[in-house]
């Protein structure tokens, strides 16, 4: 699986574009551009890292990606800590409470993924064993 020259060119362009914009004027680069850059570069990293995974471990790969996608817990925690302090409008207070409960539920779902995903991956990986050659020789002797 060889990366084409175009692939590298696109990559380089993606890295350089925001910098080029930043250098070209005194305007600030929209932070959105950086987010998109990070997203696309991460997708490329994902591409190479995943191709390097041995097919024998594709099931643990799926369960560990389940686990790490539980990182949405970050958003869920922020939602659960939304503050009603200083809010007097009852409508807004109600909405914030709705967000806090949605956040708590989201924390619970993400936690199932995090705990379940890492544990089951660990359980699977513990089963992958190499041939025990020394033990066999001892048997034969």
């Amino acid at each position: 699986m060889s990366i084409s020259r175009t692939g590298w060119a696109v990559l380089a362009a993606l890295c350089l574009t925001p910098a080029a914009f930043a250098a070209s004027g005194n305007e600030q680069v929209d932070p959105m551009i950086f987010r998109i850059a990070i997203f696309i570069l991460a997708a490329f990293i994902g591409y190479y890292v995943v191709w390097a995974v041995t097919p024998a471990l594709h099931t643990p790969l799926m369960s560990v990606t389940n686990a790490i996608s539980g990182v949405v817990i970050v958003g869920a925690i922020i939602a659960a800590t939304a503050s009603v302090l200083g809010e007097s409008n009852p409508e807004i207070v109600n909405k914030i409470w709705a967000a806090k409960w949605l956040g708590a539920a989201s924390i619970a779902f993400a936690s199932v993924n995090i705990f379940g995903g890492f544990l089951v991956t660990n359980r699977m990986l513990a089963m992958y064993k190499k041939k025990e050659r020394p033990a066999k020789k001892a048997d034969a002797a």
């Binding site: 369960s63 389940n66 686990a67 996608s69 539980g70 949405v72 817990i73 958003g75 869920a76 922020i78 939602a79 659960a80 800590t81 939304a82 503050s83 909405k95 914030i96 709705a98 967000a99 806090k100 949605l102 956040g103 539920a105 989201s106 924390i107 779902f109 993400a110 199932v112 993924n113 379940g116 995903g117």
Partner: peptide
Amino acid sequence: FNALGGMASLLAGLAAFYAPAA
């Protein structure tokens, strides 16, 4: 697990809509 991950994103997205200030 895929289902729960999707649900967690769904709920967190909704929560962001109701408490955008946070």
